[in-house]
């Protein structure tokens, strides 16, 4: 049971729930950026909650199955073709041996997820098969010619009867962060309803926002531990949202936190997209 990578696209990695417990040694947690989409993909193929899935970035991926395999594609909307025939997104698809599976470029969003029945049998590093793109801990990024071993499907998948994925409003809800007191008078209230653009250098490490300058006290903090969803405010006043591959410590004040439910949205915002901040 295997699948070969014919073209990995701009960046494709293996991701699971990540590797908590190593931040004190300087290791980022990693894991699927759009956790909901990755979980749905696993569910559709009857996988375990921590099965590794493929995460693509904007450009999709092209694969070829060894033997017949059951897979599901979720996350960023894209065309899925098996030997040239269009098949469903967000539904389990059984693919014959030797078939070429094209997961096309994202039409909207950034990251699509591909789960296989039986999971992907990569060697775990520090307990996880997730690739951390900050320090490249974990399996290397997928490369053309690479063969991924698949596990044996436990039981025939029993997918949900219907999957409804509602389009997400580009609204990011914020909570006060541990260093909200670094904000200038009135700066918190001013964030509510403010529109930002996603900057081009956004990645799995952080979502960089480009828009009205957020005023704050001058200076830097002694380095301190960071959590996912932390909104760091560098002296430039342009906020950065820390995502799964964020450095475990940092020195800019965390003035806000993105609501947990909106982190999956952060995974699918592409450079140039607009997002509205809400502090209510």
């Amino acid at each position: 049971m295997s699948v070969e990578v014919l073209d990995p696209g701009p960046l494709s990695t293996l991701q699971d729930l990540g590797r908590p417990g190593w931040a004190h040694l300087g290791v980022a947690r990693a894991g699927a950026l759009d956790r909901g989409a990755a979980a749905l993909a696993r569910r559709l193929v009857g996988g375990a909650v921590d099965d590794a899935v493929v995460e693509t970035t904007l450009g999709g991926i092209v694969l070829r199955t060894g033997r017949a395999a059951t897979l599901a594609v979720t996350g960023a909307a894209c065309e899925v073709r098996v030997d040239g025939h269009a098949v469903g997104h967000g539904t389990p698809v059984t693919v014959p041996a030797g078939a070429v599976v094209i997961i096309g470029p994202a039409r909207t969003g950034v990251r699509s997820y591909v789960a296989f029945a039986g999971g992907i049998a990569a060697e775990p590093v520090l307990g996880s098969r997730a690739t951390d793109t900050l320090a490249w801990v974990g399996p290397p990024r997928l490369a053309a010619g690479q063969v991924l071993a698949l596990g044996r499907p436990g039981q025939w998948p029993e997918p949900p009867a219907a999957v409804v994925v509602r389009p997400r409003e580009p609204v990011m809800r914020l909570r006060p962060g541990p260093r909200a007191d670094w904000l200038a008078e009135g700066a918190w209230a001013a964030l509510d309803g403010t529109r930002y653009a996603v900057a081009p250098d956004s990645d799995r490490i952080g979502l960089r926002l480009d828009g009205p300058r957020v005023e704050r006290r001058a200076g830097e903090l002694p380095s301190e531990g960071m959590v996912i969803g932390a909104v760091q405010l560098p002296p430039s006043g342009q906020p950065v949202v820390f995502l799964a591959d964020h450095p475990p410590t940092g020195g800019y004040p965390v003035v806000a936190l993105v609501a947990d439910d909106d982190l999956d949205l952060c995974a699918q915002l592409r450079p140039g997209d607009r997002v509205v901040l809400r502090t209510g």
Binding site: P20, A23, H24, R29, P222, E224, G225, M226
Partner: peptide, 26 residues
């Protein structure tokens, strides 16, 4: 504090000491 918290079995996903803080995550 971080060493103590680990030895005391304080349940956390991550315990991250830094320059003047300890982060308890999870």
């Amino acid at each position: 504090l971080a060493v103590w918290a680990r030895s005391a079995g304080l349940a956390a996903d991550d315990i991250v000491p830094a320059a003047a803080t300890v982060l308890f995550d999870g």
